[in-house]
Amino acid sequence: MVSPALPPLREVIARHGLSASKALGQNFLFDEKLLDRIAAIPGDLAGRNVLEIGPGPGGLTRALLRAGARVTAIERDPRCLPALAEVSEAFPARLTVIEGDALTIDPAGLFDAPYDIVANLPYNVGTALFIGWLSGENWPPQWRSLTLMFQQEVAQRIVARPGNGTYGRLAVLAQWRSQAHLAMKVHRSAFTPPPKVMSAIVHVTPGTMPEHVSARMLERITEAAFGQRRKMLRQSLKSLNGAVEALTTLGIDPQRRAETLSVDEFIAIARQLSR
């Protein structure tokens, strides 16, 4: 797709006097080749609806538009709106910018058709947004895929397997009815200003919803189990009525700890308690 001429992002930032806000968890990416690689992770975006969170001055936004997407971007920082307006003018009717807090906006109300979420998430709200998109009883969700940049440590927690030190509640929530994999690592030097930690991009696609399992019950079980992860399951789950008995019924040793249970075992416990 032929892209309209836009000034380099560094020039736009300098002209508008923008700087990354630590309070908002901002770090800017300028490398167009890198941004195009990120935009390619969900597959062909031509004509598809994409939700972007925290576009900042619009680096990734440009890449998504170059890939042919129709982008709806939610930006909390009013300083970035003039730069995004320039991008919108360059791609008529392809970019909608909403000023607001993504934590308070329901994406389902923004689209009439399925959409993809692609975002360099602000570090301070990324995990909360991610859990929100994975939650709820309605499945499959309206989103077709999540392509999200996190701190590398968080990304590793999302794709971790049982027995790994990073395996926890986030991994179970991401994997019990979705497929999650680490799509790309991004060196800290790629950002302006460079963060203190490395980053990585996780790609998630919805899977099949296990039968007879309440999403809310599974969320409660993982919250209790990993909230006291050093304790045996008979202790960490005792606040959930019937949970210890469910372990016995399922043949799961109540002396085990949460980090040793597979995703399928958590699903089995949730199914038992959902009856």
Rank of each mutant, 00 (worst) to 15 (best):
P4W: 12
P7C: 10
I13W: 01
R15V: 08
S21H: 07
Q26F: 11
L29N: 04
L29Y: 03
L29C: 08
E32W: 08
K33Y: 10
L34F: 11
R37V: 09
A39D: 02
A40R: 13
P42Y: 01
G43V: 07
L45E: 04
A46R: 15
G47Y: 10
G47I: 09
R48D: 01
N49I: 03
V50A: 00
L51R: 06
P57V: 11
P57L: 11
G58R: 00
L60G: 10
T61G: 05
A63H: 01
L64P: 01
L64S: 02
R66C: 04
G68K: 00
A69V: 06
V71R: 04
E75N: 08
T96L: 14
E99P: 11
P107G: 12
A108M: 04
P114K: 03
Y115G: 07
A119L: 04
N120Q: 08
P122F: 01
N124I: 02
V125G: 07
A128W: 07
I131N: 03
I131V: 15
P140V: 06
P140K: 04
S145P: 00
S145E: 00
L146Q: 07
F150V: 10
Q151C: 11
Q151W: 05
R157A: 07
A160Y: 13
N164C: 13
V172E: 09
V172N: 05
A174D: 10
A174R: 03
Q179P: 01
M184Q: 13
M184W: 07
K185S: 15
T192Q: 13
T192W: 11
P193E: 13
P195L: 12
V202G: 10
P206M: 10
P206Y: 12
P206C: 12
T208D: 11
M209Q: 15
V213G: 05
A215F: 02
R216T: 15
M217H: 03
E219R: 09
R220Y: 08
R220A: 14
A224V: 10
F226T: 08
Q228F: 06
R229K: 15
L237F: 09
L240R: 03
N241T: 15
G242N: 14
V244K: 00
V244S: 00
T248F: 12
T249Y: 10
T249G: 12
E259W: 05
L261T: 04
D264E: 15
I267P: 07
R275I: 07
